[in-house]
Write a protein that binds this DNA or RNA. Structure first.
Length: 264
DNA sequence: ATGGTCGTGTAACGA
């Protein structure tokens, strides 16, 4: 089973690329972020026509997340329960697997704009609420995968120029601490389970030829619970769509779960 | 050099 995440920065603009990508990468679940469209504008038919189903939490202009799946999913949850927030940033679904139910969550974590700003404070509060909810959710669903745009580069090796980025938003210590708090729940950064090429990133600014210079950050992540970790056989970034015409500024990340692997 | 490029929606704002 392959699970993937991709911040598409407008599903309206990127829909043909997403459909093409699913044709080449027929993953069981694709978590999307930054749909930037209202619930009633979601292009469900386009996914149905290629054999996929979808659950989504839309919002006009900003945010919006979805989980695109081959199989039907259940127990759909919009947003973080008990966290009042008009911004549509999270969608949780349950998928069947040979080892039992898996909770698959698409998350678009706040960007934070600038260290010390109101949006930065909101970002840290949001991560606090996410952590508190995930702690409970892991009791209900020990097999849990949360995929998305975390807007945090966890370590300097995830930053093209750590000296230039030191202390900046996406990299600051309070944000990294919030990320480590998630890891403290027993979640694993699937990408770092494996040998990876140095300077592998998932986001490159549209400005200043950042992609051409590989001036990127690794801010899109797949986190796996302790019960899922032993099944993870691979986790890779697919840089190809970032080279498309009219690309998203993010690349997809794909994790492979192999049920034939004996759990530890 | 304090910019730069996108998407939304048609002026700024968010990223």
């Amino acid at each position: 089973m392959k699970l993937a995440t991709w911040n598409v920065n407008s599903l309206k603009v990127r829909l043909p690329q997403v459909l093409d990508w699913l044709g080449d990468n027929p993953v069981e679940a694709l978590c999307l972020q930054e749909l930037k469209l209202a619930d009633d504008s979601f292009p469900l038919d386009a996914f149905t026509e290629i054999g996929y189903r979808a659950k989504w939490a839309g919002q006009k202009t900003y945010n919006g997340v979805a989980v695109i799946t081959k199989a039907e999913c259940s127990d759909v949850q919009r947003n973080i329960p008990d966290y009042e927030d008009p911004q549509q940033r999270l969608l949780a679904t349950t998928l069947d697997s040979p080892v039992g139910a898996i909770r698959v969550i698409s998350a678009y974590c706040p960007n934070g704009q600038a260290v010390g700003s109101d949006k930065y404070e909101y970002k840290l509060r949001w991560f606090g609420a996410l952590r508190a909810w995930l702690e409970r959710e892991l009791q209900r669903y020990p097999r849990l995968a949360i995929l998305g745009d975390y807007n945090i580069a966890p370590a300097d090796e995830d930053v093209h120029d750590p000296a230039k980025w030191e202390g900046e938003v996406l990299v600051s210590e309070p944000e990294r601490s919030a990320f480590r708090d998630l890891i403290g729940l027993g979640l694993t950064d699937a990408f770092r389970m494996f040998e990876q090429e140095e300077k592998t990133f998932t986001w490159w600014d549209y400005r200043r030829y950042a992609f051409r210079r590989n001036a990127g950050l690794r801010i899109d992540h797949v986190l796996l619970s302790e019960a899922l970790r032993p099944y993870c056989a691979a986790c890779v970034v697919d840089r190809k769509p970032r080279a498309n015409e009219q690309p998203s500024d993010h690349a997809p990340v794909i994790a492979t779960l192999d049920w034939a692997r004996a759990p530890a």
